[in-house]
Design a protein around this nucleic acid. Structure first.
Lengths: 251, 251
DNA sequence: CGGTTAATTGATGTGGGTCAAAAGCAGTGG
DNA sequence: CCACTGCTTTTGACCCACATCAATTAACCG
């Protein structure tokens, strides 16, 4: 269990400077995202004295462990990560991919024991806030509470969608759904050129997210290519026939 | 689409009286539950002038329609209901069974358009509160906000569990999980005798909840009977070998 | 007593899992 | 520059859990 405790933790310097430098070190150069990460948490929030803590976690490393507790709220500043449930048989089920600006979990504001694990997909920068501060702000700041609520509602929506997809849809529909879902979220931050989306996943992650085996994911992706629907490789997804993908992936 | 608009809506009389009479008419006689239903919403909450509205909905009727909007929050007072997502191909995926005392959805406090449908499983009594009141109380009443947060956290937990089960578990594991999950929730209100639990579901509902066909659910339930694990029929679940069920249904 | 809805059971089909081999590719070190 | 290693993806052969289709029974009900 190599969780955050094992990672280097440093206190942030001046906010603007730290954000920008964090972005520069991010492998995806998502400078625009870092601002997003703080829109939610609002500028005057402070942990103890020195401001929020920043943490860098290497690609593939575990960030949170299911059942573990922390008195911090995590916000992803740069890079990608994902939340998952670890099953007793060693399998895992990914239930959310985290993009810069996302809270790791909005519920973590009110629960100290995490019911999920989280892992870095790329090298990531994380910002940590004291739960007590966050919770207090939830009572006193209406704007803040609304922001949390929006994130909560979006989460509930996505989650219900994923349940429906896992319960009722075929392999290709599941993957189409996942692609469409991620595309939407990426497009919300990014300006996209030529329908090419950065998607730093392995086929294994897709499999873990939609309840298939990596072998079968590979086969389905092959048919997507043959049929001229979408081309996924090396962390880039290129959409060739959007209407068709949408037809398959729509609930 | 026969939603609530088509149902008889009447204003509540004196609270205590109405609650109790509601319970008497409930086919499951869950008198103890109704108190639960109001623990969350707290006694001094009022809609407009006349107090909360009560609604009775017959078994099998739709209560909320996905995409529909309402400016009320629904609380289930008696009977069972369920939330589901309606798919474009006519299938549905149940993602939560509602027991007396449950909010239909805690997110509905902050979203006016529902992302799910809801239907009565038995004849049910529902209590409706104005969203504006609910939301306001969320800002001003810490106790209330904590209660909402608890319900939210529990929901997120259950939801993550269900996703894992749908993505990674076999038919019998899914059904075992569902049984254990419901048993836990029932036992939280009820005193249970002889491991017999009232579960007013058809096999169709089980199928819709765990992503199987009713035919296959029937087969799995048969093996549960043959193996002396559990006996489900006529809305009653009897557990014969709890350890075995738990072994199968555990995440 | 027919009509309806739920559950059971059997026969058959198939989507996706499992197993295994091979190929591509990046990193590493000599 | 090349062999070696580890990781990911691809491909093929085979299998099985669950779906589908269909017929039968059971329970309920006006």
């Amino acid at each position: 269990m190599e969780t955050l405790a094992h990672e280097k933790i440093r206190s942030a310097g001046p906010r603007e400077g730290t954000q920008l430098s964090a972005c520069v070190t991010c492998p995806h150069r998502e400078a625009g995202f870092c601002a997003e990460a703080f829109r939610l948490v609002s500028p005057e929030l402070r942990i103890n004295e020195g401001g929020p803590k920043f943490v860098t976690v290497a690609s593939g490393k575990q960030i949170l462990a299911q059942g573990g507790s922390s008195d911090h709220i995590f916000v992803l500043c740069s890079g990608w990560a994902f939340r998952y449930v670890q099953l007793s048989d060693g399998n895992r089920q990914i239930h959310k991919f985290l993009l810069p600006g996302d809270l790791f979990s909005s519920t973590s504001i009110f629960e100290d024991v995490a019911h999920f694990s989280a892992r870095a997909l790329t090298s990531v920068q994380i910002c940590m806030f004291a739960r007590s501060e966050f919770r207090e702000k939830c009572f006193t700041d209406r704007e803040f509470q609304s922001a949390i609520a929006r994130s909560w509602v979006a989460d509930a929506r996505d989650t219900a969608g994923l349940i429906a997809v896992l319960g009722r849809r075929s392999a290709e529909q599941r993957i189409a759904y996942l692609f469409l879902h991620l595309i939407q979220r990426i497009a919300a931050h990014h300006v996209i050129r030529e329908r090419r989306y950065p998607l730093p996943l392995r086929q294994q992650h897709i499999a873990d997210a939609v309840g298939l085996t990596p072998v079968h994911v590979s086969r389905v992706l092959s048919t997507f290519r043959e049929r001229g629907i979408a081309w996924f490789s090396d962390g880039v997804l290129e959409i060739l026939d959007f209407p068709e993908l949408e037809r398959m992936g729509l609930l």
